[in-house]
Nucleic acid binder design. Structure first.
Lengths: 183, 183
DNA sequence: AGATTACTTGACTGATTGGTTAATAATAGT
DNA sequence: ACTATTATTAACCAATCAGTCAAGTAATCT
């Protein structure tokens, strides 16, 4: 056979996701990608393809990792519906004061800087966002707020924007509190 | 005296705002800026400064124009508070199906692609967003939803993300309907 | 009209962009 | 040990990036 890969695929994908998450598509150059992954351009090209492919790979990683764990929490029947929504909103409050939290939500970032210009990106972003919507619907099922799925869903993404713009933890706490008052 | 400016300042500022609005900071090159404004680089530099200055100029234009007219509507006492919020949300519904509406909200775009890397941008974005928040507070004053200022405010920006990600008019209508049910 | 001032233009810069490729290295099967 | 196959590396490419500048132009004031 042939020479085996030297790099750890999972670690490279995480690094790829992180670098695009922090800097966006246009804001990320190959020198940054190479530094983040520890790979040379040639390796990146032969393993994944061009920059756009790397980006879609990063979005896929975000979906199967970050989005999926959020979705799993929203679908966790060990918690009450309102508790799950509360946890979702608490995630926003916590994000307001961590470095990584300040990166916002990769889906929102992609929606704004790439979805309008690239159909595959739009498709994958919309799909991931809809997975979140369905999970919220599940959490709200049977509660008084079952007719407020799109509302909670929109609030979640709105909160991400507030964080990215530099909104304070106190502001996010207000959003959380007012959201929970709907349940 | 000296040679007068040949260009119409207002038109150039509008063009500047539009080109950054549509493509973002990193996504806009000088060749695009020159095409949009009809000015050469040298003129842009001598009149406004470097690319960052052009961007801040565009944000300022958005604030004094677009944001201000929205704020004026929200503060228009000829309309009831709920009618003003309804108009705000209807704006989102309408935006979902126009070319310009699909550009989203320049504040959100700036929050995501520039605020984290550039303090002046963060400052001006946060200020504009807070102007909107205060106007929403004014519209809600005296209504049952007077304690839901941050909620409506966050919904507005969340709606902008939904639009940018390619959300349908029907989705935005759902968001609007559920928002109005809070009033 | 002439002098002064400031605007406009387009060629130019060096750095960086995304992307390619040829040479080298490392493995597995025979 | 040899061959086939694939990974890795670094030099290389044309194109484009943001930014500069000297030369030419147009207006106002004296």
């Amino acid at each position: 056979m042939a020479r085996p890969r030297e790099f750890d695929n999972d670690k490279v994908l995480d690094a790829l996701r992180d670098v695009f998450w922090e800097h966006g598509y246009e804001g990320t150059s190959y020198s940054q990608i190479m530094a983040a992954t520890g790979l040379q351009k040639g390796s990146l090209y032969s393993a994944f393809g061009d920059k756009r492919s790397l980006y879609l790979e990063a979005l896929a990683r975000y979906d199967t990792g970050n989005v999926s764990s959020g979705v799993a929490m929203l679908r966790n029947e060990d918690l009450s519906g309102p508790d799950r929504i509360s946890a979702l909103m608490q995630g926003l409050v916590d994000a307001a004061e961590t470095r990584r939290g300040r990166w916002g939500c990769l889906l929102c970032n992609a929606a704004i800087d790439q979805a309008p210009f690239n159909k595959p990106t739009e498709k994958v972003v919309l799909q991931s966002m809809n997975r979140i919507k369905e999970a919220i619907a599940k959490a709200l099922e049977g509660t008084d707020a079952a007719d407020k799925v799109e509302l909670i869903w929109t609030l979640y993404f709105g909160g991400r924007i507030i964080i990215k713009s530099g909104g304070s933890k106190a502001t996010l706490k207000a959003v959380k509190g007012q959201t929970l008052s709907l349940l």
